[in-house]
Design a protein around this nucleic acid. Sequence first.
DNA 1: CTGAAAGCGCTAACAA
DNA 2: TTGTTAGCGCTTTCAG
Lengths: 334, 334
Amino acid sequence: MVTLKQLAQELNVSVSTVSKALNNSDEIGAETIERVKELAQLYNYKPNQLALNLKRSATKTIGVIIPNILNHFFAQVLFGIEKEASKKGYNIITCLSNESNEKEIKSLEVLSHGSVDGFIVSVAEETQTNDSKEHFENLVKQNIPIVMFDRVLNDVGCMQVIINDYESSYTTTKHLLNEGRKKIALLSNISELSVGKLRIKGYLDALSESKHYTNDPIVASYDLDDDNEEKIESLLMQNMDIDGVIAIDNTSGVIALHKALKSGKQVPKNISIIGFSGNNILPFSEPKLSTVSQHPLKIGSTTVNMLIDSLEKRESKKRKVLIKTELILRGTTL
Amino acid sequence: MVTLKQLAQELNVSVSTVSKALNNSDEIGAETIERVKELAQLYNYKPNQLALNLKRSATKTIGVIIPNILNHFFAQVLFGIEKEASKKGYNIITCLSNESNEKEIKSLEVLSHGSVDGFIVSVAEETQTNDSKEHFENLVKQNIPIVMFDRVLNDVGCMQVIINDYESSYTTTKHLLNEGRKKIALLSNISELSVGKLRIKGYLDALSESKHYTNDPIVASYDLDDDNEEKIESLLMQNMDIDGVIAIDNTSGVIALHKALKSGKQVPKNISIIGFSGNNILPFSEPKLSTVSQHPLKIGSTTVNMLIDSLEKRESKKRKVLIKTELILRGTTL
DNA sequence: CTGAAAGCGCTAACAA
DNA sequence: TTGTTAGCGCTTTCAG
C-alpha cells in the first residue's frame, strides 16, 4: 500500500502538503493539488484506515451481537442492519452469542477497546434469564452507545427498539375469539424471554376479558432444543377440540399447521392458526400461514439510525422506539 | 479509556516500562511488574486496539462477503465462520452483496485499506455471470489473501472451498434411477451459477449413462424472483408421470413435496424427491425431505482455517479444498 | 533494570 | 502557499 510519505517524496513536497491537497484544502495551490491528485490516482492511493481510525478515535464500524443467526428473524434484522449501515458508510462487525451469556460478554469486551464506535445487541437467552447486565453497564459508563432490539434489558441505560409484543398477541387472540373459536392454545419456545412473557400475557388477558370464552387457557411451552414437533403433535392429538392456535415464535406455527393437517383437520374450517414469523416459511405450507409480521428489516434499519444519530451527536431524543406489528391474514384463518 | 501514558504518570515510570511490564518482559523487575499490573487492573486497562492495529498493520479481522444472508445455506456457513474465527481470536466484518456485483466491489474496496487482514467470499450471482474478477485480482496483487467458497471464480489466484457439485447430483440421480424411477425432473433456481451448472451436468450425465432410462431429461429452471411455487406446481401438474425429482437448490425440494402431496400423490410411493439443503426446512414437511447435505458449518470453519493459515504464514499447501456432500435419505425416498 | 526516542500513517495547529 | 511539528497509543530498538 502506497503512503502519503511515498507520494510526498516522489513529488518533493511535504507529507502535510500531500495530505491537504488530497483533502482539497484551500491552503494549497490549485496546481499542486492537481499534481498530487494525479500521482495519487496513478498509484491508486487510498488512506490507510488504521491510521485514520487511530487519529480520530473512531472506526465507522458498528458491533452487532446477535443470539442466533440461524433464526430467520435475526437473519432478517441483520439484513436490515447491514443494508442501512452500508448506506450510511458504516461497516458492521458481527458476533454471534449463540445464546451464551459468556460469549456475549466476551464479544463486547473484545470489541469495546477501539474496534467499534457503538453496539447493536439482542441479548442472549441466558443473559435475560440471569438478568446479567454488568457488561452493558460498563459500556454505558464509558459513553459507548448501545441499541438493544427485541430482547432488551430494561434497566440498562441504553436505547431500545422493540415491538408491541403484548398488544400484538392480545389482538391476535381477539381475532381468534372473533372467529368464534372456543379452545385456543398458545404455542411457544420462547417463554423464558421477555418478549415471550409479554406475548403470553396478551393472550391470557384477551381470553380472560372475553365473556363468551369458557375454556381454560392452554400455554404450551417447550425449549428450543426440545423436540418441538413431537410436543406440538401430541398436544393437538390429545386435544382434538382445539380450534385455534396462536404460535408466538418463529416456527411453531408452521409445525402446528402440518400436524393439524396430518390429524385430518381442515384448516381454517376446523382450526385457525396464526404464527409470528417472516415470510420465509410461506412457501412451505399449504394453505399459507397467517402471521403477525414484525417488520424485521425496519427494526434493523431503525437500530442503525438511532445508533448513528447518537454517535454523530445529533443526539436522538427517542431513546425507545416501538415498531408496530401487523396481523397478516392468509390461508389459515377465516 | 485509560492509556499507558496515564498509568506511567501515576507510577512515575516511563511509558515503555509500563508497556514492557504488562507484556511480562524479562527486562523489567518483578516488583515493578507487580506494581504496574496492579494499577492496570485497578483502572481496567486494556490496550487500545486501534493503536495495536496501526502498529502491527494487522487487525485480526476477517472480511466476509456473502451474497444473501436470507438464504439459509449462507446463514449456516456464516455461523460456521463466526464460530471458528471467534475460537481463533479473529473478528469478522460481514458485508452482504445482495447478489450485486457493484456492492461486492465496493465492499472489497472499502475494507481493503487496512480494515481486515483477509477475505472470505462467495461471489454474487452478477459477478459470476459477468465473470467480473478485476476487484479480486487487485487484492491478490496486494497479497491480501482470499478464500472463496461455494460460488468461486476459477481463474483468480485465491484459495477455494467447494463441494463436489457434479458428483453429488450424479450420485443422487443414480439413486433415483436405482429406485426404478422412469421420469426424473431437475428443479433449479440457480442455473446461472457455476454450482448449478455442475449439478445439472451431473444429473444429465447420470441419465444419459443409464441404459434403461428412456425419457428426456427435464431441467426446470427459474429465477430467484420468479414465482417458483407456481412454476413447480404447474410442472408437476402437467407431467403427472414425473416420478422422481432432484431439486438442486435450497427450497425447491420442499415446495415440490408440498405440490406433489397437494396433487394427491403419495410420497415416496408414487414419486421420490431429493433436495439440496440444510435441516432448517425439515420441520416443515411431512414426510421429511431426503437431502444432499452440504456440511455448511464445515465449509465455514474450513475457509477460516485456510485463511488464518495463510495469514500467519503457516502457508497452507492446500489451495483448494473439497468438502464431500452426503446423501441423507429420509421420508421422501424409498 | 529502566528510559528515551523512533515510528506505524495520518491530520492539523502553527510557523515560515 | 507550503513545511515543520506534535500527537493519536502502542511497541521496540538502543542507550543509559
